[in-house]
């Protein structure tokens, strides 16, 4: 069963080429229950991606640690699969082989592998493209492949670093639905980094706000699902938006002007 993910006194300090020290993360402390959908929101350059990379094990923290249950998470591994902002689908593998990659690495037996792959191909609606090359797919379909690959390794925690940032509005909305369906079905813990407040309101159980590397607020989003236009226009949702904007240093007038 999924484990609690806890960030304990997490610091991440980078050194610029000029020798200047930059605090990408400053004393971040919070816990995430299993099966929660957490959105990490903040301006660009304020530590969102760093937080995710530390959690993924791609970036060692300067101080503090990340725990999965009782274990300290160190290097990258299949227990924290990640979907990236860039296109990271392996162009030299067919769609099916892409989804199989993590399973092969984990030495899953052949029959299981085929069954699981088939399941996830169906789940993201790409059965007809199983033997296509990634270059033959559209950007949104490639994202589905990445999503399926991350889901298929069977990790309890899935990390997403602005995965839909480069997609058009309609594709993005469509993928939100796909993602939410998968989440409901699998009960995985999902960390979703975004700078889009609307996206956070559609997806999240909880919004973690980062500013200058500090955790400035932890907002529970208790809106009813599915979160259609009406729900997002409700007073509660608007209030959450206002809180987030205020924390990010944007007043309401600025927001409306922009």
């Amino acid at each position: 069963m999924s484990k609690i993910v806890s960030f304990e006194d997490l610091w991440c300090v980078f050194e610029h080429r000029s020798g200047q020290l930059v605090n990408a993360l400053q004393n971040v402390n919070f816990q995430v229950k299993s099966g929660e959908f957490v959105c990490v929101v903040g301006r660009s350059g304020h530590g969102k991606t760093t937080l995710l990379r530390v959690l993924a094990g791609l970036q060692p923290p300067t101080a503090g640690r990340v725990r999965l249950g009782d274990e300290v998470a160190t290097g990258p591994g299949a227990d924290r699969a990640m979907v990236f902002q860039q296109d990271t689908v392996f162009p030299w593998l067919h769609v099916r082989e892409n989804i199989e990659f993590g399973l092969r690495a984990g030495k899953t037996p052949r029959e299981d592998r085929e069954r699981i792959t088939q399941h996830w191909l169906a789940a993201v609606g790409l059965e007809d493209f199983a033997d296509s090359w990634p270059r033959e797919l559209s950007g949104g379909m490639r994202k589905r492949v990445a999503l399926a690959s991350a889901m298929a390794v069977g990790s309890d925690v899935v990390l997403m670093d602005e995965p839909f940032g480069s997609l058009d509005y309609f594709t993005r909305r469509n993928l939100h639905d796909v993602l939410l369906d998968l989440w409901r079905e699998t009960q995985k813990t999902i960390f979703f980094v975004t700078h889009d407040i609307e996206e956070a309101l559609i997806l999240a159980d909880r919004v973690i706000l980062l500013a200058e590397g500090k955790l400035v607020d932890d907002i529970p989003v208790t809106l009813p699902r599915p979160r259609d236009e009406d729900v997002r226009a409700s007073e509660k949702a608007v209030n959450i938006t206002k809180v987030i904007l205020a924390h990010l240093g944007i007043t309401e007038e600025e927001a409306t002007r922009a």
């Binding site: 990258p76 699969a81 990271t88 993590g102 984990g106 990790s155 990390l159």
Partner: peptide
């Protein structure tokens, strides 16, 4: 690309 290697690592490569 670095991203592809990192992606493979997080998928348990």
């Amino acid at each position: 690309p670095v991203g592809i290697i990192e992606s493979a690592l997080t998928l348990g490569g």
